[in-house]
């Protein structure tokens, strides 16, 4: 199918660009380790191990979502130099599928995020994480969904803002409350009533909760189901919105 081959073509180009830059590979690998190294050691005191589980099973899923928010969430930055150089416009004049213009990039971002997630998890095992393989793999599926939707929304934002200067402040402003409301640093069960209610408006809360259950080896739970549904809706919705923007993009 044309859409698939178009997407794969652009995916390979974008992945090539990323892989050609040694600095971006280095940064991509250092980032997840920093999360563990600079925050993890405090964790064991803050969240003492409960019976049959340890703090890392709570913390690592949150970290994965945080990695997504601050990695794929900023994917739009990659679009800005291409918009400025006219690359997007050059591609929009060709018969290539508009969905592929988005998917090619998003697939690259998803692969980068998946590699980072695997690294982070492996390093976390060194720190003391123990979790069932099936649950971890299931979490990675959610990580992929998260990367796809965050990257799409990030591209949508980059294409929509009147000036590129606004991109960083807007992403920061959106990402920070989403991060805090998702119970990434501490579980939302610690939150007072009003904050807990508010947190249910963050889609990432459901994903974090779902991933935590998966890490604990609880597969058939309400949280996992909710997380999966939210992830699915996010992927479809963000791709649809993002593609629409590439059809009419003014850049």
């Amino acid at each position: 199918m044309q859409i698939i081959s178009d997407s794969v073509l652009l995916f390979r180009r974008h992945l090539d660009t990323t892989m050609k830059s040694k600095i971006s590979i280095l940064i991509g690998m250092v980032q997840p380790v920093l999360y563990l190294l600079l925050f993890g050691p405090m964790l064991e005191k803050a969240l003492p191990d409960a019976s049959g589980s340890n703090a890392w099973q709570m913390y690592v899923p949150g970290l994965l979502v945080q990695l997504g928010l601050f990695g794929a969430g900023y994917a739009g930055f990659n679009l800005i130099p291409d918009m400025r150089a006219g690359v997007i416009e050059r591609m929009r004049v060709t018969p290539i599928s508009r969905l592929a213009l988005l998917l090619g990039r998003v697939m690259r971002d998803a692969v980068v995020m998946l590699i980072q997630a695997v690294m982070l998890t492996l390093v976390a095992v060194g720190f003391g994480l123990r979790a069932p393989l099936v649950g971890v793999v299931g979490s990675f599926v959610m990580v992929l969904a998260l990367a796809i939707s965050l990257a799409s929304m990030s591209y949508l934002l980059a294409l929509s803002l009147p000036t590129e200067y606004l991109f960083a402040p807007v992403v920061n402003t959106v990402a920070l409350p989403l991060l805090l409301l998702s119970g990434i640093l501490l579980p939302m069960t610690f939150a007072p009533g009003w904050l807990s209610v508010l947190s249910h408006f963050s889609p990432f809360r459901y994903i974090v909760d779902g991933m935590r259950d998966l890490f604990l080896g609880h597969y058939a739970t309400r949280s996992v189901l909710e997380g999966a549904i939210v992830a699915g809706v996010l992927v479809v919705g963000s791709l649809a919105l993002g593609t629409r923007k590439f059809v009419q993009a003014n850049s």
Binding site: S21, G86, V87
Partner: peptide
């Protein structure tokens, strides 16, 4: 139309690193 036309924008359209 897209299949039959070529377009060179004012700013060009090449990726700087490629």
């Amino acid at each position: 139309v897209r299949r039959k036309i070529g377009y060179v924008a004012q700013s060009g359209g090449t990726s700087p690193a490629a």
